[in-house]
């Protein structure tokens, strides 16, 4: 008898864990999540070990604007994420490497880090497909004394 009760309790617990895992997955995938950034490319706006809140709705609805800070998959390594600012939208003229000017092609964006001297960005690997953009940064939540909104409007 006790064995059956323990069994059904365990089963119920696993079921609840599974349900909440699914709810968490959907929230992080479709609504918003938290990201820890590392590296110098976005200084002085962002520093290493800042925690950012990002939302996934704007990239899905294609409502990205110039000046937005976004999280995207790195074009040369899909397992790595990059955090950059959108400098050019399709049709814009941008200055690339060696002062060559490019026109951003359809379905792409031009990403640059704020720390232009120390950033691997579109000036190196060219325009980035919009399909690689995962989320848009809304605000910084950590450290607590530097909580700020990071949207331009």
């Amino acid at each position: 008898m006790t064995f059956a009760r323990i069994f059904s309790k365990t089963l119920g617990f696993i079921g609840y864990t599974f349900q909440y895992a699914c709810v968490t997955h959907c929230t992080f995938e479709y609504v918003g999540d938290f990201v820890i950034c590392s590296g110098p490319s976005m200084e002085p706006t962002l520093e290493s070990n800042n925690i950012l809140f990002t939302e996934h709705l704007s990239p899905r609805l294609q409502r990205l604007r110039r000046g937005d800070i976004v999280i995207a998959k790195c074009p040369s390594n899909p397992k790595q994420n990059i955090c950059k600012r959108i400098v050019g939208l399709p049709g814009d003229k941008v200055r690339g490497n060696f002062a060559r000017s490019h026109v951003v092609p359809r379905g792409h964006v031009w990403l640059e880090g704020d720390n232009s001297g120390n950033s691997t960005d579109s000036r190196l690997y060219g325009p980035v497909p919009e399909g690689l953009i995962r989320s848009r940064v809304v605000c910084r939540v950590w450290p607590l004394d530097k909580i700020t909104s990071l949207t331009d409007y």
Partner: peptide
């Protein structure tokens, strides 16, 4: 509320 996320997660993974 619980079934929908399970379905979406299944389709996603």
């Amino acid at each position: 509320f619980f079934g929908l996320p399970i379905g979406i997660t299944f389709l996603d993974t």
